[in-house]
Write a protein that binds this DNA or RNA. Structure first.
Length: 507
RNA sequence: GACCGCGUAGCUCAGCCGGUAGAGCACCUGACUUUUAAUCAGGUGGUCGUGGGUUCGAAUCCCACCGCGGUCACCA
């Protein structure tokens, strides 16, 4: 090792065997062995870090180029680049980047020893003094460098990172290391959820948890996952919605407002807007109706946009979307009329089918009036709803848990909020008449028997709960993943989920 | 599920009118030594997704399968 002293910088002159040449993994293994042979722990327990990288960048932002300080710091992070034979190391921690300057003159023989075994990808600690190089880069002039975690895997290509979409999700850790945007999106998601929780707590709502494993399917229309509990010898559905349990808590008077932020599971296709498990907030507010909920959702989304972007206007792809309250409110039937010049309101099912056919919308021949209207809306209207809008007053036929409209018995007091053509929220004045609810359940059962796999099952205990008495209540749910997409300008739901559902690898 | 596209070194990508497989990054050796995607010289590294077919000869053409992506259909 003494030949090193001839050079002014710690050139890496390890005795790496020839067979390691060109094999990053083997070279790293050999360096790991080298560390152990030199009595250096490649995986120490702790490191006395004094600052995060960004803290130092902020604190010393006015330090002039070429200035040395006596300020002692200890930083730690992953080595992302090495220049001049390891004289300059770029390390990144969760906050950002800082350069470590390793010059022989300021390092002891022991301290230099570690440098021989450092590769890109290793996690190291550096203790020294703050300086800004003549070229203007804030650096830690190292007195000592500590191996904190020896990495045995080569990092992806440094300019391009990982591009294979599947590999990015399978090895999200590599994606996060290499891709600033991936980090940004998941951090924004976390921030967004924190804002939602605070907003709800400020409204006096309490957060609750209800079963993910449910013996009776309910609360939404979707195909479920089924699982089995051995000791009970009973099948359970992974929930498609928490709705019926949350309303039971309102019946119980646990709080006037309850909410849950958690996963739902739907056994359906995967697309850029759909992941089999997705996160929703669902909430119920006693003594409120759907008009109150519209205002609440506008407030919430506007608050999120302001805190994340500092503005209500956001960019999504080619669109500029303004989330500022108040949002437009239009009934579903009126919107269909706007876009098709056909008024479905006075029609019966047969007439509606005929009009849908004329519009070129294919509809299940067994569909009732409401289902036809819904199909036409989905085909002709939905994708146009770029700016935020509440689509209100859905057909009774498609809304088995909503209260009948106070001025039109064919409709219910329900709305769905759309942004960027996507359904973002679904809400209604809750049906709390137990007899009507029981009838609606029976209609669902009839649909189920007729082959509709998405129809609900009858939940007798839920009817009992309504018989005990649910106060007048407004309820809503909103897809967190989609909202996160809107807020981060991400166009695939998998970008906003750390570990999206993938086909398992074989073997 | 249907249609279209892609699968080449650890990573990012060329090569595809058939003729022995290339670059950059990473890795190894050396040079340089206040760099910023450091630079320079040399080197290692590939059953070209899998299986079959056509051909004297296939990464390249054909078929099947697997995997992934996109579009469409269903769904939040």
């Amino acid at each position: 090792m003494s030949q090193k002293s001839a050079s002014t910088t710690p050139a890496t002159q390890t005795a790496i065997p020839a067979e390691a040449s060109g094999n990053p993994r083997l070279a790293k293994e050999k360096k790991l062995e080298g560390l152990i042979a030199a009595g250096i722990d490649p995986y120490p327990h702790v490191f006395p870090r004094s600052h995060q990288a960004q803290e130092l960048q902020d604190t010393y932002k006015d330090l002039e180029a070429g200035v040395e300080t006596e300020d002692a710091v200890a930083v730690a992070g992953r080595v992302m680049a090495m220049r001049n034979n390891g004289m300059f190391l770029d390390i990144t921690d969760a906050s950002g980047k800082i350069q470590v300057f390793c010059h022989k003159d300021t390092m002891s023989e022991d301290a230099l020893k570690v440098l021989e075994f450092i590769d890109i990808g290793d996690i190291i600690g550096a203790e020294g003094t703050i300086r800004r190089t003549p070229r203007g880069e804030l650096s830690v002039r190292a007195k000592k460098v500590t191996m904190l975690t020896k990495s045995l895997q080569p990092l992806p290509e440094k300019h391009h990172g990982l591009t294979d979409v599947e590999q990015r999700y399978r090895q999200r850790y590599l994606d996060l290391i290499m891709n600033e945007d991936a980090r940004r999106v998941l951090r924004t998601r976390s921030q967004m959820i924190a804002i939602i929780r605070r907003f709800m707590h400020e409204k006096g709502a309490i957060e609750v948890e209800t079963p993910m494993m449910q013996p009776i399917l309910g609360g939404a229309s979707a195909r479920p996952f089924v699982t089995h509990h051995n000791a009970l010898d009973a099948d359970f559905f992974l929930r498609i919605a928490p709705e019926l349990y949350l309303k039971r808590l309102v019946v119980g008077g646990l709080a006037d407002s309850v909410f849950e932020i958690n996963r739902n599971f739907r056994n359906e296709g995967i697309s850029i807007k759909h992941n089999p498990e997705f996160t929703m907030i669902e909430a119920y507010h006693a003594y409120k109706d759907y008009n109150d909920i519209m205002t609440l959702i506008e407030d919430l989304v506007q608050t999120i946009a302001m805190e994340i972007h500092g503005a209500t206007q956001i960019t999504f792809g080619e669109h500029i979307i303004d989330l500022k309250s108040p949002w437009q409110r239009r009934s579903m039937v009126d919107l269909v009329k706007d876009y098709t010049h056909v008024d479905f309101m006075p029609m019966d099912a047969a007439q509606a089918h005929a009009e849908a056919k004329k519009l070129g919308v294919s509809v299940d021949p067994k569909a009732n009036w409401g289902q036809v209207v819904e199909a036409v809306f989905g085909e002709m209207v939905e994708h146009n709803l770029i700016q935020p809008i509440h689509v209100t007053d859905h057909p009774l036929d498609i809304s088995p848990l909503s209260k009948i409209h106070r001025s039109n018995p064919r409709l219910v007091e329900r709305f769905e909020s759309y942004i960027n053509g996507w359904e973002m929220a679904n809400a209604f004045t809750e049906l709390n008449d137990p007899k009507i609810q029981f009838e609606r359940f029976m209609e669902q059962v009839a649909q189920r028997d007729a082959g509709n796999e998405e129809a609900m099952m009858v939940d007798h205990d839920f009817v009992t709960a309504l018989e005990v008495g649910l106060p007048p209540t407004g309820g809503w749910g909103m897809g967190i993943d989609r909202l996160c997409m809107i807020m981060t300008d991400m166009h695939n739901i998998r970008e906003v989920i750390a570990f999206p559902t993938l086909k398992p690898l074989k073997d």
